[in-house]
């Protein structure tokens, strides 16, 4: 798998770092081999090369879900780290890579869409849970520019060994919540099937 991005100058200075740090951190966590992660050009270009083989649809779905969670993590971390509730410009969602991996498992479009949506949600929860690790890897990536999978594992081990590590929250930016229906985009006006929590009126 290869993910390569060129950011515009308007992007958040840390967006690229969060993206690649999240890829690297989740891959290291799931035992996926990382060949290299690199960020260069004053945080405007980046690339990650990792061993994520295409599966032919006969394996357990868990395996491909794990792969895709690592792929979606970049997008979700970029969104979370920059304080956006919705994808913004320069949020690179790796949708082509995701689709290519899930398509062998189902030919049903609705199932595929729902599956991708679910895996994005799963990645979002993973990113929020492991934000401390991701921010640490992002910091090291900013300084080193190039890292291998071994470097990432060592950084994570150091981080977890440190008894004084604190809670890390996204840098400086407040969380920007989604708009309500009146000010939202046209997509809000389209009727959608009520979700499980809406049917049960469950709130968090």
């Amino acid at each position: 798998m290869r993910c390569r991005i060129q950011m515009s100058r308007r992007a958040h200075p840390h967006a690229l770092l969060y993206h690649y740090a999240a890829h690297a951190m989740v891959m290291a966590q799931y035992g996926i081999q990382i060949f290299s992660v690199r960020v260069h050009g004053v945080r405007r270009h980046g690339a990650i090369h990792a061993d994520l083989p295409l599966r032919d649809g006969r394996e357990n779905r868990r395996m491909v879900e794990r792969d895709v969670a690592a792929i979606c993590a970049g997008f979700e971390a970029q969104k979370y780290g920059c304080g956006h509730a919705r994808p913004m410009a320069d949020c690179w969602d790796d949708s082509g890579t995701t689709l290519k991996r899930l398509e062998p498992f189902t030919r049903d479009g609705a199932e595929l869409s729902a599956w991708i949506q679910y895996l994005h949600e799963r990645s979002r929860v993973t990113v929020m849970r492991w934000w401390g690790e991701i921010a640490t890897v992002a910091h090291h990536l900013d300084q080193a520019h190039v890292m291998t999978g071994v470097d990432v594992s060592e950084i994570l081990e150091d981080y977890r060994r440190n008894p004084f590590r604190g809670t890390v929250s996204p840098f400086r930016f407040p969380r920007r919540e989604e708009h309500g229906t009146p000010t939202g985009g046209n997509v809000d006006q389209i009727w959608s099937r009520p979700t499980l929590s809406e049917l049960l009126r469950v709130t968090q």
Binding site: Y118, R122, S197
Partner: peptide, 30 residues
């Protein structure tokens, strides 16, 4: 619906995640 919600909550408590998960499983069941 309550059976679904309870089953999901064994594994995760995040409501948007549960919604997306339930929707995915519904499509898979279909």
């Amino acid at each position: 619906l309550w059976g679904l919600m309870r089953t999901c909550q064994w594994v995760d408590r995040d409501i948007p995640l549960i919604d997306a998960w339930s929707e995915y499983i519904e499509e898979r069941t279909r």
